[in-house]
């Protein structure tokens, strides 16, 4: 067996990599703090955040309010933006210093970029893209739930010997905890031993924030093959409901839209209150991304489409026949409420 750089005996605590971008914490990091708090309670396990950046110290309190007991902050101008080499180096040093039992990261592009790199550097196991986490009753080992093979299989994965037990977790699978501003925690500033020559990555352009975060949408209107590339009505209905628009894999494969709003196993996991799913047959790969919705409406021309098994209200028809009267009816209903 490949030996990790430290063993289970020396390890303790659940640590969370607090991903920030331009001075804002990623939602998934707070979701992880909340989940870790829940796992730790009753076991007396400390929750420690790891925060890297340039003048990001203020964010530590956010993590503490979400449930962290301690935040280790590496603050340095060289860490202003994420770079694989810079961040992997600093995070590894912090990990080897603190020897956590468990290290959790959000399964974002940067989170996965970093996790894959440091897992090998630490010679440890990494359970990628988890949809749930729990601690084994007796051993306290981390069990990561992952979706496999697109066929509705759930695998439970653990890492018995190597430390830290690493996992990346999808955004949206856990709720963001309610912040408790009164919560107290420790903020530890970590000295950063980094020089410019350690960072070979040059960031030439960095654009974020343009897109919409569909994982936080309360109302979601999703379209698939059935929209034939025409999102006009879908957009109209979504904006009428103050919601966001998402889609299945097909519109991406067809080149109609980018992956920004793709829902499902290889896209985003959403947890809206209401999801209106139009012209999507409802293969498992899609439904995993909406199944946490409170209410699901399915509109599909094929009465046997599997989406109807996963829906509360079902309309068997072409979405283009249904959406125009539905939009009218919503307008009327909202008018009756005095509008918004």
């Amino acid at each position: 067996m490949t030996k990790s750089l430290y063993g289970a005996k020396e390890a303790s605590g659940i640590w969370i990599y607090l991903e920030q971008s331009q001075g804002q914490l990623e939602g998934v990091s707070l979701e992880l703090v909340g989940k870790a708090r829940e796992l730790a309670d009753g076991r007396g396990i400390p929750i420690v955040g790891v925060l890297l950046g340039d003048q990001v110290g203020d964010l530590a309190q956010e993590a503490i309010a979400a449930g962290a007991d301690e935040v280790r902050v590496a603050d340095d101008p060289l860490l202003r933006q994420y770079t694989t080499d810079g961040y992997a180096r600093v995070v590894t040093e912090i990990i080897l210093e603190g020897k956590p039992d468990i290290l959790l990261l959000g399964a974002t592009p940067d989170g996965r970029d970093l996790a894959g790199r440091i897992a090998v550097r630490l010679r440890t196991g990494l359970t990628a893209d988890c949809t749930d986490l729990k601690l084994e009753e007796k051993s306290g080992l981390l069990i990561g739930e992952v979706w496999g093979f697109g066929g509705g299989v759930i695998a439970y994965i653990k890492c018995p010997d190597n430390r830290p037990q690493m996992a990346t977790v999808r955004a949206g699978v856990f709720a963001v905890p309610k912040p408790d501003a009164a919560r107290k925690g420790k903020v530890v500033n970590v000295p950063v031993k980094l020089s410019e020559k350690d960072i070979k990555v040059q960031v030439l352009e960095h654009v974020v924030g343009g897109g919409v975060d569909i994982t936080r949408a309360e109302v979601l209107v999703a379209a698939g093959r059935g929209c034939q590339g025409d999102f006009t009505l879908v957009n109209e209905l979504a904006s009428l409901l103050d919601g966001e628009v998402g889609w299945s894999r097909v519109p991406v494969d067809e080149g109609w839209v980018s992956r920004d709003g793709m829902i499902g196993q290889t896209g985003y996991t959403t947890r809206p209150k209401l999801a209106i799913v139009c012209g999507i047959s409802g293969a498992f790969q899609f439904t995993v991304g909406v199944e946490k919705a409170e209410t699901i409406v399915a509109i599909n021309i094929d009465a046997e489409a599997p989406i109807f098994e996963a829906a509360d209200y079902c309309i068997v028809d072409d979405m283009f026949n249904v959406l125009p009267p539905l939009i009218e009816a919503v307008k009327k209903a909202r008018g009756g409420n005095g509008g918004r």
């Binding site: 490949t2 979706w147 299989v153 759930i154 695998a155 439970y156 995993v288 199944e291 699901i296 209200y313």
Partner: peptide, 16 residues
């Protein structure tokens, strides 16, 4: 270092 501890069939939420 990681092992599969078990497999399960995905359950879907009961819908109306």
């Amino acid at each position: 270092p990681t092992i599969v501890d078990g497999l399960a069939q995905a359950e879907s939420t009961e819908r109306k």
